[in-house]
Simulated assay, not measured.
Amino acid sequence: MEHAVKRLPTERRPGCPFDPPKELIEARDQSPISRLTFADGHQGWLITGYDLVRAALADRRLSSRKELLRHHPLIDFGDIEVPPAPPGEFLLMDDPQHSRYRKPLVGKFTVRRMRLLTERVEQVTAEHLDAMANAGPPADLVTALAKPIPAVMICELLGVPYGDRDLFQGNVGKFMSGETSDEDLIAAYAAVQTYLAELVAAKRAHPTDDVLSDLTDTDLTDEELKGVALILLAAGLDTTANMLALGTFALLQNPAQLAALRADPALVENAVEELLRYLSVAQHSVRVALEDIELGGRTISAGEMLILALATANRDPERFTDPHTLNLRRQQGGHVAFSHGIHQCLGQQLARIEMRVVFSALVNRFPTLRLAVPAEEVALRPETADIYGVKSLPVTWDA
Results as ranks from 00 to 15, higher is better:
residue 246 L to S: 14
residue 354 E to R: 01
residue 172 V to H: 08
residue 228 V to R: 02
residue 259 A to F: 06
residue 253 Q to E: 15
residue 270 N to Y: 00
residue 34 S to W: 01
residue 100 R to Q: 10
residue 74 L to E: 05
residue 323 P to Q: 07
residue 37 T to R: 15
residue 369 L to Y: 10
residue 130 D to N: 14
residue 287 R to N: 07
residue 302 A to H: 06
residue 25 I to R: 13
residue 345 C to H: 06
residue 300 I to V: 15
residue 162 Y to L: 04
residue 330 R to Y: 00
residue 138 P to W: 04
residue 112 R to D: 11
residue 83 P to L: 08
residue 361 A to M: 12
residue 272 V to M: 08
residue 84 P to S: 07
residue 202 A to D: 12
residue 230 L to I: 02
residue 334 G to N: 10
residue 77 F to G: 15
residue 111 V to W: 04
residue 389 G to V: 00
residue 44 G to M: 07
residue 174 K to S: 06
residue 345 C to A: 11
residue 356 R to W: 01
residue 365 R to L: 04
residue 37 T to L: 09
residue 299 T to Q: 13
residue 381 R to D: 03
residue 2 E to F: 04
residue 27 A to H: 03
residue 50 Y to G: 07
residue 152 V to G: 01
residue 105 L to W: 05
residue 226 K to R: 15
residue 163 G to H: 08
residue 304 E to R: 09
residue 354 E to C: 03
residue 59 D to L: 11
residue 380 L to T: 13
residue 20 P to E: 05
residue 146 A to N: 11
residue 368 T to C: 08
residue 30 Q to H: 09
residue 209 D to I: 01
residue 3 H to K: 07
residue 108 K to N: 05
residue 309 A to W: 09
residue 62 L to W: 03
residue 70 R to C: 11
residue 357 V to G: 05
residue 386 D to T: 14
residue 369 L to V: 05
residue 258 L to D: 02
residue 223 E to G: 04
residue 397 W to L: 07
residue 98 H to R: 13
residue 113 R to T: 06
residue 74 L to M: 10
residue 278 Y to W: 14
residue 193 Q to P: 01
residue 280 S to C: 09
residue 339 S to K: 12
residue 201 A to E: 15
residue 348 Q to W: 01
residue 218 T to Y: 05
residue 115 R to H: 14
residue 127 E to W: 00
residue 267 L to G: 04
residue 351 A to H: 11
residue 64 S to P: 01
residue 247 G to K: 12
residue 115 R to K: 14
residue 154 I to W: 02
residue 18 F to G: 10
residue 144 A to D: 10
residue 312 T to C: 10
residue 356 R to K: 15
residue 18 F to K: 06
residue 271 A to L: 08
residue 176 M to L: 13
residue 184 D to G: 09
residue 267 L to T: 04
residue 114 M to K: 05
residue 111 V to H: 08
residue 272 V to L: 10
residue 211 V to D: 00
residue 288 V to T: 13
residue 237 L to G: 00
residue 36 L to N: 11
residue 56 A to C: 07
residue 103 K to P: 01
residue 30 Q to L: 12
residue 61 R to T: 03
residue 270 N to D: 12
residue 42 H to M: 07
residue 247 G to T: 12
residue 313 A to R: 12
residue 332 Q to I: 09
residue 336 V to W: 03
residue 228 V to L: 06
residue 308 L to T: 11
residue 218 T to N: 06
residue 207 P to N: 07
residue 348 Q to F: 02
residue 199 L to D: 08
residue 301 S to W: 02
residue 324 H to K: 11
residue 366 F to W: 10
residue 380 L to W: 13
residue 389 G to K: 13
residue 66 K to L: 15
residue 213 S to L: 03
residue 178 G to A: 05
residue 350 L to Q: 01
residue 253 Q to R: 15
residue 279 L to M: 06
residue 399 A to S: 14
